[in-house]
Write a protein that binds this DNA or RNA. Sequence first.
RNA 1: GCAGAGGUGGCGGAGCGGUCAAUCGCAUUGGACUGUAAAUCCAACGUCUUCGGACUACACAGGUUCAAAUCCUGUCCUCUGCA
Length: 344
Amino acid sequence: MNIQDFGKKYVFMPDATRGAVRFLTTEQLKGTGTTALVTNTLHLLMNPGPKRMLELGGIKKLMNWDGIVLTDSGGFQVFSLIHSGKWKGKVHENGATFHSPWTGDVYELTPESSIDIQIKIGSDILVTLDDCRGTDLSREDAEQSVDRTIKWAKRCKDHFENVYGGTKETGKLLSCVVQGANFPDLRKKCAEELTKIGFDGYNFGGFVVDKDGELVIDEMKAVIDNTPKDKFKYAMGVGKPEDIRRAAKIGYTVFDTVLVTRNARHGTLYSSDIEDEVLRITNQDYSIDERPIDSKCDCYTCKNHSRAYVHQMLKVGEATGMTLATIHNLRYYQRLIEDLNAGL
RNA sequence: GCAGAGGUGGCGGAGCGGUCAAUCGCAUUGGACUGUAAAUCCAACGUCUUCGGACUACACAGGUUCAAAUCCUGUCCUCUGCA
């Protein structure tokens, strides 16, 4: 696929945060119909580090992956590790400082270093560093998040253009992240400012569901309405199958979420045979169920194994159970995407 | 046969006179998870319940005590050592 066409059709990218979709080989990943994946700048900065990554020829060569790679900037970790208080660290005007609790090492991400690392990783689609926050933000915090996110995005763009020659020289795309929490006017402001700077894609950032788990559709619309029509819109972290369908309806074409793979590992599978499409495979009913997880699914798991087998493997903690469940859930999502594309 | 140690909820294993229906782990049964610190986390887990409680329980049978899983006596089992 020509990278310039990214987002013209619907695409779901599983998260291969550290360079692998958990429990899957690259070949198994390809087998699910996956064409693009997300890796993480901070995680790859910590290991193997940009220097070694460059020596190894980049993430694609390392993984033997010939599809598209999008690198998340580390902006989500600004929220999930620092704002959340899980790691020691600090968010400041120039970026964010992360103190690894495992090694004690200190990692610094600035708008410029995030771009440098993403280039060394060998990403096709870069994301600007943003100041991501949690839900239920005060107006003041949301404003600070928006201001920083815009400033950092500008610095990312300048660095990408001035040092690497931008899309023209690299063939890579640069996308930005729209913040603004649950304030539609701030979402609008952020979207407009970022549009002035100009990016190849506009990503909906922050939390995509409210505290009740409902998709924040009004804020998501505010971003669609205030960004260029011909650039891709990426709903970061979306979501449940139904949330993807809803986001697709209002104009988003690019998606990723950890739910699909994490749920698989935790026994929450998807099946069109079930009314709300959720099948908790570890529930005792499935211990003697010899049917496939989904009678309409063409994945390796459904073609070769029963619900009872996946149930047993997950119950006893066999890695094979995780693999089979992950393959199925990913294939379920890719079929959902194929259905959306069939309707284009 | 003698001498030690011990028998606690599905299992392992705490408790060693009152705050014990009994710490904790496992198993079991539900649930959560949304740009991955997540093969993680939460809850329930004797029986009944009008959710206030009520009842039956710590091998078995007696006993001491206001009060026993906890102390005493006997019985039955288990393990270890010596014969």
